[in-house]
Each structure stands twice: as C-alpha cells, then as structure tokens.
Design a protein around this nucleic acid. Sequence first.
DNA 1: CCGTTATTTCAGAAAATACTGAAATCAGGA
DNA 2: TCCTGATTTCAGTATTTTCTGAAATAACGG
Lengths: 192, 192
Amino acid sequence: MNLPPLIQSFVLHFGEMGSRWGIARTVGQMYAVLFVAERPLSADDIVDRLGVSRSNVSMGLKELQSWRLVRLRHQPDDRRDFFSTPDDVWQIVRILVEERKKREIDPTLSVLRELLMLSPASEEERHAQARMQDMHEVIELMTSWHADVEKLETERLIQLLTLGSKVVKVLDLKDRLFVVPGRGAKAATPKA
Amino acid sequence: MNLPPLIQSFVLHFGEMGSRWGIARTVGQMYAVLFVAERPLSADDIVDRLGVSRSNVSMGLKELQSWRLVRLRHQPDDRRDFFSTPDDVWQIVRILVEERKKREIDPTLSVLRELLMLSPASEEERHAQARMQDMHEVIELMTSWHADVEKLETERLIQLLTLGSKVVKVLDLKDRLFVVPGRGAKAATPKA
DNA sequence: CCGTTATTTCAGAAAATACTGAAATCAGGA
DNA sequence: TCCTGATTTCAGTATTTTCTGAAATAACGG
C-alpha cells in the first residue's frame, strides 16, 4: 500500500467498515481512495495506491458503479477510464440509502406481502403471520417517510435534521390545540 | 429444516438478508425463528427447527444477545435457557439502529476526529482532510438528529414518521414568515 | 485490417468465515 | 460431594468469498 499515512489510516478504516457490511475489504478501500482523491483516478492509479491486482480493481469498480457510488469520467485526449465519487457527501448518503432500500427493504416487503396472502394452516402459522404483519407495517411506515423526505432539497433536509426533536414540540402543540381530551388510549401526562 | 412452509419461507429469506449484512446465514435464520415463535424457545427447539448443530445455535444465540436482539428468559421449574425477541417491532428497530450506530458510526467518527487533528504533510493530505471534514459534518448532523429522535415515545415517533414531508410545510411557512428575503444563498423559488 | 493499449472475464489459489463434534465447564439436586 | 443435564468452548473441517494471473475481448489510431 502506497499512500501518505493520514490517507492510509482512512483507507484501512473503510476497508474494515466495508467488510462489516456486505462489501469486500478491498472494495471499501478503493472507495476510500477515490473519496479523498483530488481528481478522478484511473484503475491503474488505484492499483498503485493499494497494491492489489488489476483484475480485482476492475471488479471492485464495477461493484461500486452498480451501487452508483462512483461514476465513470473521461479526460480529454486519454482513452483510459477515470473514476470519482460525488463531491457532495449528502448526495452519497442519498444514494446509499436508496440502494440499500432497493436491495434489502424492497425484497423483504415483497416476501412479507406474498406470505401475508397465504392462508395459515395452523395456529402456529397464524401467529407467525401476525408477527409478519407487524413487521410489514413498521417497514411500510419507515419507507413512506423515506419516500417523502428523499424528495427534499439538501438545504431543507439539513434544516429538518437540525431541528431534530424540536419538531416534536410542534406536534405537542398541535395535540394540545386539536385533540379532544380523553379521545386517546390513555390520558396525556405532560412532563414537568 | 423442520418448519411449516409459510414460516420456512420467512426464515430462509432472513437467512439471506442476514448474510447480506455481516451476520451468518444461520444466525439470521435463528432470529427469524424466534421472531415468529408463539413462545420463548430453547436452544434445542431451534436445533430441531433448523437442523443445525447445537454448538452453532449456542454461538448464534450469543451473537444475537450481544446485539440485544434476543433476550434470555426462564420458565418456572425448568432450568434450560429460553430465548425470545421483543414483542414490539419498534423496540427491535430502535435496538438495531443503536447497535449499528455503536458498531459502525461511533468508531468512524472517532477515526475521523483523530485524523482531523493531524497536520497535513502535503497538498494531497490537506485535500483528504477537507473531504473527511465534510464527511464528519454530515455524520455528526445525522447522529445528533438520531439522538433527539430516539428519545421519543413510540407513539410520537409514529406521528412524526406519518407526518413525513408535511413537516416540511411547517418549515416552509417558518421560512416565509421569518427569513428576510435575499439573505439566503439564492432567491427562493416557490413551486407553482 | 493490424498493432497497441485498456479493460474484462474466469478458473483456480488463497484467505476468511461458518459450522461441527467432542471435550470441558457449569449449575443445581440428591 | 457426586451425578445429571444444560451450555460453552475450541480445534479442526467444510464452505464461501475474495483475489490473482493469464487469456480473451474491446477500442481506437494508423
């Protein structure tokens, strides 16, 4: 590995984090190298920096492209492929969330819906379906929240996150103004 | 594998999802079995249902306990250990988010902060630090949002998620009322 | 076309991870 | 304390995943 120490630490950390996910250690390292690079890099640049085989880099870049985490760029008067990560970290987060949703959440929702259509053949299966129903509802709610929020411009998203729990105060207020006392399952118990 | 078909499909799916994460296929299956079970199960119950070795179940349950995803229970007049998942799916989601934060986000923040303290020895390192700084800011903001939101009662959390992008309308309104026109980076361009 | 350089594919080697069975440990009850 | 049954540990095996080098393919300029 042929990197300045500060960058090397970063790259090694992302290699470890990568393998804690589903992605191979060296693929995580490739991503890290691209993320901190001053300009788009060729596959051979990455070979030089990480000291892994050319074919491994080729496959790793393909995987990163399938995640839309790196984009292919071209330099004038150079027919090699160059690669870079988006400049905007928020953009990276959005892509990560979308891709993980597509690969993990959507197939799970699909399986759950399919299984919820079947008729349970026993009390055991009936109970299992009830559990799946609970899970389905939670995932659906989180998914629809995400569908809403992903549309926001980054500026707004930041605003929303910064607000954090203060949003809840708006909800509190709304409750106090509009909810008829006694209509909820249990009496409100305001703090302090 | 000795399970009713509906449950078996669910279990197999979670095995696959598990291995897409960092957890072993059989550990994902163990979790799925426990999730849909009508009552707490002993390790041997899981051996019967999944057909894996007793020692594998023992290790898998240990891992699931380290994630706080299953809890150990005892039945009166039985000295075997029984295991179950929380009844409340929201509770499960909270635990998952907390544990992943602890294992992935916190160490990353710690590495980033450490590297941001160092003096860059070159322009390349200086640029890398700037990128790390960007990443650090984004993660910090998401983390502080999470710290706020995790404190909410489940009822409130659901309210917040249900509201989704409607919250943004509140932000919009707030902007229109309080932001001096021209102070932002670019002029507001209200839709429609 | 042909030669050159860039990239991809793929079979097998290497490495990492998961799983098992046997032995060890533990935790009561007699 | 000894016995019994429950659980854990761990060394070795099996499986899966990652990585490599060599060969194939592609892309372009002449």
